[in-house]
């Protein structure tokens, strides 16, 4: 009987301190959940699409820098009236010129292959110089996120996924 009272008391005191101890309060939880859900509501970007965008960005950026792929963070954030896509990339090591050129040459070769495969694909990308690769890739990624019906973009992305990151293919289109 007495023991019961004491354990009860002990638990209550402990519970009291635990409650004041918790890191996140109801208000913060509400704010954070709401921010995430509103970003999805406003942009039509589901968590799956965000993950896909993240993977594609890793592929794209790995050509130029060696980075911590696990730590790359991609978040939609609101800054006042402006919606921003925040990308945080921990760079491990800058690639040297030969490495970059090798990567780009490899990609060019892939591009040509794809181009031949889908003969009527947009011709403007084929004769572009390596300097413009950046912008090309960005347009591709936008196409992916917004509309899924652009076949030529789809083909390119899946091809790249197969070659560059064989372990990440579980989410690819195939």
């Amino acid at each position: 009987m007495n023991e019961n009272i004491f354990t009860n008391l002990y638990n209550k005191v402990l519970g009291f301190f635990r409650q004041t101890d918790k890191e996140e309060n109801a208000k913060d939880i509400a704010c954070n959940r709401l921010r995430v859900v509103l970003m999805q509501d406003r942009t039509n970007l589901t968590p799956e699409l965000m993950e896909r965008m993240r993977k594609e960005l890793i592929e794209l950026l790995s050509k130029y820098v060696e980075m911590d792929k696990e730590a790359l963070e991609l978040n939609l954030e609101q800054d006042g009236d402006q919606m921003a896509l925040m990308l945080s990339i921990p760079v491990l090591r800058a690639r040297n010129e030969e490495e970059i050129e090798a990567e780009l040459a490899k990609e060019d070769a892939e591009k040509e292959e794809v181009q031949e495969a889908s003969d009527d694909a947009d011709t403007e990308h084929a004769d572009e110089e390596t300097g413009d690769k950046d912008t090309v890739a960005v347009t591709e990624e936008e196409d992916e996120a917004v509309q899924e019906d652009d076949k030529s973009a789809d083909v390119k992305v899946t091809a790249k996924e197969e070659n560059l990151s064989p372990d990440d293919t579980e989410k690819s289109k195939k």
Binding site: N25, A26, K27, L38, Q78, G80
Partner: peptide, 18 residues
């Protein structure tokens, strides 16, 4: 409730909805 951090404050709502 706002004082005890159990409810979103006016500032939070205004910021979220801008």
């Amino acid at each position: 409730l706002i004082k005890s951090n159990d409810m979103m404050s006016v500032e939070d709502v205004v910021e979220i909805l801008s």
